[in-house]
């Protein structure tokens, strides 16, 4: 697979000259190796899907690497009957609330960090930078005690609050970088007209920062949606169960009925699968929000 970019003969445009070196068999070899990786990367996902469409009998007796001859949706029905919609809704609530709070707080904070030269604000920003490095795991014990003392244990809000706190540093940093790129003249021309900070934020910053806001929102949503440690430590009842915990409990409950758990796994990724199908570019950009603009 080495030197892949040097190995293409079939793309015509002259700008692609770097891909027109090396013999043709290179091309064939790289395509072959690329295909092998395709199987490694995608086949397990296909296996999830195939298994989720099998009956319990079919799973134990059928050939595991081939699709079932009698695909069935009964596992999805089982998962839905087992309260899936409730867990799904919990996850949606936690993720959406987290995103709104993180992005809302962050854009306000980012605006002030960019616009003000106050020393305290500098310090605040630097603390957020250090906060980037703090792993959730390191604070989970005191968070557990704190949330319990606040009476928020086993409540969705108890997951949301710390998720917001740990989502802030990266979001603030990305938005600061973005807001900083807005030319100073634009601020000045608005400030000249006597516009307040809120007005400038609403009519200048928000419209210009929309792509960045979308990206970080997607990033924060994926983080919240997949978060496992906070719900694991901060909730226990079925009532406040979110998706990742639901998968684990399905696995425990249906130990021998693998197809049911696979159906739960597929459904748990539904928002991201749909986003990938309908807006792949946005989703992938969003997942990289932390490392680009």
């Amino acid at each position: 697979m080495l030197a892949t970019n040097a190995a293409n003969l079939d793309t015509a445009p002259a700008v692609n000259s770097r891909f027109r070196r090396g013999p043709t068999w290179y091309n064939a070899l790289f395509t072959f190796l690329g295909f092998i990786w395709l199987i490694i990367a995608f086949y397990p996902v296909l296996y999830m899907l195939m298994t989720s469409l099998r009956s319990e009998q079919g799973y134990l007796l059928g050939i595991p690497w081939l699709p079932s001859l009698h695909p069935t949706l009964e596992n999805y029905a089982t998962v839905v009957q087992a309260g899936f919609a409730h867990f799904f809704l919990n996850s949606i609530i936690v993720s959406l609330c987290s995103v709104i709070l993180i992005v809302g707080c962050s854009i306000l904070c980012a605006y002030v960090v960019v616009r003000s030269r106050n020393r305290a604000v500098r310090v605040i920003f630097n603390v957020f930078l250090v906060g980037l490095a703090l792993p959730i795991q390191a604070a989970i014990i005191p968070i557990y005690i704190l949330i319990t003392d606040m009476g928020l244990y086993d409540k969705l809000i108890g997951i949301i609050l710390p998720s917001v706190a740990f989502g802030l540093p990266l979001t603030v940093l990305i938005l600061v970088n973005f807001v900083r790129d807005i030319p100073n003249e634009l601020y000045e021309s608005m400030g000249m007209d006597g516009a307040s900070d809120f007005r400038i934020l609403r009519h200048l910053v928000l419209p210009l920062a929309t792509p960045a806001l979308v990206s970080v929102s997607i990033y924060d949503f994926v983080q919240a949606w997949n978060n496992f440690l906070f719900p694991l430590v901060l909730t226990e009842s079925t009532n406040s169960r979110v998706m990742p915990l639901a998968i684990v409990s399905f696995q425990g409950q249906y130990t021998m009925n693998v197809p049911v758990t696979m159906a739960a796994v597929i459904l748990s990724a539904l928002p991201l699968i749909l986003a990938y199908i309908f807006g792949r570019r946005w989703l992938l950009r969003g997942m990289f929000a932390g490392f680009g603009k």
Partner: peptide, 13 residues
């Protein structure tokens, strides 16, 4: 404008 972010981060992180 800065307060919400600071409060969240200070209290829960």
């Amino acid at each position: 404008m800065v307060a919400p972010a600071v409060l969240f981060f200070a209290v829960f992180a």
